[in-house]
Amino acid sequence: MESGLMHHVALWLAAFLTLGIFSFLYRDNTWYKVCEAIFVGISAGYWFVAYFWDNLYTKFWVGVWVTPMADRPDDWYVLYVGAALGILMLLRLVPKVGWISRWPLAFIVGATAGLYLVTYFASNVMLQIEDTVRPIFGAENDAPIYEIIGNIVVAVGTFTGLIYFFFSKEHRGAFGRAAKVGIFFLMITFGASFGYTVMSRMSLLIGRMDFLFSDWLKLIK
């Protein structure tokens, strides 16, 4: 791969940065601050470059200029709309007309609101309801008992959980008790997700430790 020296420099650099970030756990210190400054600079630069080449150049410039006419999709010209919105956005740099940048912003907000409204309605409300509506047990009664209990739990949990989210009705009486059961279900959900995630998070730390012990210090083969 790389020459020996370059590889060593790379390893030591990566180790220096790794330990610098870890040092934050003890307390804020100069080493961490240096790593933080490097991180912000390098990553902001990364995205600046990536946005330029991937979006402005590859998407817009290539789309309206480089690609030969015959190979273009029939709606290539709409890319100009994007560029126009982008330029309006950049007018923010000119104090006198900076307010025009609200137009592209308003467009983005409106389009996002419209898109989310229908897609979330379709994929979450409709689909989740459809999934909840299922028999608790079937004709043959061959479903194992844990599954039957599970199905009841899903139906009751979804029902009471939704009741908890009601805003315009006071949580009192039977309704209040149902909402209370709902919050119990939510809490079990949160606990379970938390416990389940621990393994993922630990893996990341193990990965870093592995780098320090084996790649850098070569303590293990």
């Binding site: 409300v125 309801i129 909840t132 509506v133 299922r134 028999p135 608790i136 047990f137 079937g138 004709a139 009664n141 139906a155 979804t158 029902f159 939704l162 009741i163 989210f165 009601f166 805003f167 315009s168 009705k169």
Partner: peptide, 29 residues
Amino acid sequence: LKGQDVGKAVALVVIVVGTMAATIGSAWD
């Protein structure tokens, strides 16, 4: 906010009616 509660009410009714229909329907045909 009250409007979105109507959505939840619809969901609740469908879940109750649907689960009952599905269970009775498939268990006792």
